[in-house]
Amino acid sequence: MCSANDIWHADATAPIQRITDDPNSPQLLRRLTLETFSWQMRNETSIQKALRSPRTAPRWMAALLALGATVTVEGEATEMAVAHLLERRTQGEVVALHIPTSGMVWGEACVRRTPADDPIVAVVATVALENGVVRQARLALTGVWAEPVRLASAGALLAGRLLDEATIHTIARAVENEVTPQGDFLGSAEYRRAMAAVLTRRALAQCMHFATGE
């Protein structure tokens, strides 16, 4: 594990526990790693294995998507976005994980049956701001498709706007309209769609508060 040029790098063959042990790992990732994986899982599971099984820890994957994480894959010439792993664009072995660490604020929200249950729907947002205006934003959700997903359109919609209540409301509505969840015993499609909006609003509101220091 090391940090250089505002990028945090991790050996993907290392156990996930290294993320929580490394004080330089991105705070959001460290926190969701602790919340998502038991200690035993963190010791047993390599980062590369977790990346290859996104349904095991969807909120953790969503954090990586929102953080703009990339991976180095054996046999591939360039680093790839984590989203490409979800799309199964490569079968090569993941050897390293890279996460930008500067200039972003983040927020996350989820709903679950109990405080340590797997979330029914979760939203992770990261936003880069310049003078209160969104320069770049990434929004990732779980529980609204079969696998965690980054909503590129919502992020694009945010870019160039002031991050304020009105914008957040607009984005939440856009997310609600965009997602097409399948219902299951934890939550119907209607519920999940509604939660996508509520939790998007909360995650972005956290970003706003984070940015304004409130």
Partner: peptide, 21 residues
């Protein structure tokens, strides 16, 4: 399936679920 953890042992001093290893 790794859900309960009662098979936990220490592997090099760290806890792991022996049904998953």
């Amino acid at each position: 399936s790794g859900d309960c953890g009662v098979c936990t042992v220490l592997l090099d001093g760290q806890p792991v679920r022996s049904c998953q290893v």
